[in-house]
Design a protein around this nucleic acid. Structure first.
Ligand SMILES: [Mn+2]
Ligand SMILES: [Mn+2]
Ligand SMILES: [Zn+2]
Ligand SMILES: [Zn+2]
Lengths: 144, 144
DNA sequence: CAACTGATGCGAATGATTCACAATCAGGTC
DNA sequence: GACCTGATTGTGAATCATTCGCATCAGTTG
């Protein structure tokens, strides 16, 4: 039960929070907007106010449970914290892939230090053409 | 004269466009919001509508004259295109430094290829504590 | 310098996100 | 278990950055 996850984060285990966490866990692989979460909850007969979703996602972010991204369109996308990784986004179909490269992380740390910064986090997004068969058709509209 | 820059980009050399371009050139080192540009123009007695600034900045972006960034707050910041470089942002004072690392770029290309992507651009931002004496006071856009 | 066409300026519209606040709930206390 | 109290929620209104609509205006071309 994720009740303990919430308690551990210093948050009361309320129903909205449990349901939102559940949606995030069921979509580990995706990057969801607040609206996406809202819709998925509605599909599940859970009518939770959009403002609550925004509030809870921010609380989760503060608690280190989720990561908020601002990819190129400026809108926020959320995902469950699952360890460090970076993103590869297809500029044609919008597909988002994840990857992790230790050597790159190391080099980033070195570069930051070289400028006198104490690195705390980073954002790396690679944009390109995924060149797959089903690209382009599937134009930027995935869910469920 | 930057009139030729605009013509070359296929844009009419109008006064608003020339003035906006001028502001960008006078602030090469900064990353300006549309509002910032608007204010700087007002300071210069140039009263250009904010909507025009947004429109022109987008046109400049399409023409490859400027780069639009969405750093963590989601709001757009613009800068004149001046060749590839990445950013280092102080999480305390908001200072933005630039750097370029060829080896990193190479590694990014390799990683993208490994996933079958044809890399077209990337975004790398390192966040950390700049640890300088005038950090924290200088708070450019911070509050709390 | 007239005509054509695109560009501007304004204010209204939009869309994502936040706020205000009264009603409700979770979690500890007897 | 009932009670209390502060935290949390739902609702709608408010905000903020950004975009649109449209009447007017200005560059460019010949
Ligand atoms: Mn991810
Ligand atoms: Mn820059
Ligand atoms: Zn694709
Ligand atoms: Zn600093």
């Amino acid at each position: 039960m994720q009740t303990s996850d919430l308690r551990k984060a210093g948050l009361k285990a309320t129903l909205p929070r449990l349901k939102i966490l559940e949606v995030l866990q069921q979509n580990k692989q995706d990057h969801l907007s607040a609206e996406d979460v809202y819709r998925k909850l509605l599909d599940n007969e859970e009518d939770i106010g959009l403002a609550t979703i925004y509030r809870v996602l921010s609380q989760f972010e503060d608690a280190g449970l989720v990561i908020r991204h601002h990819f190129e369109d400026g809108h926020a996308l959320f995902e469950l914290e699952q360890g460090p990784h970076d993103h590869l986004i297809c500029v044609k179909c919008g597909k988002i892939e994840e990857f992790f490269d230790n050597e790159m992380q190391q080099r980033q740390r070195d570069l930051a230090n070289k400028s006198g910064f104490d690195l705390s986090k980073h954002t790396l997004v690679l944009y390109g053409d995924c060149q797959t068969a089903n690209c382009e058709n599937d134009t930027k509209k995935d869910s469920s």
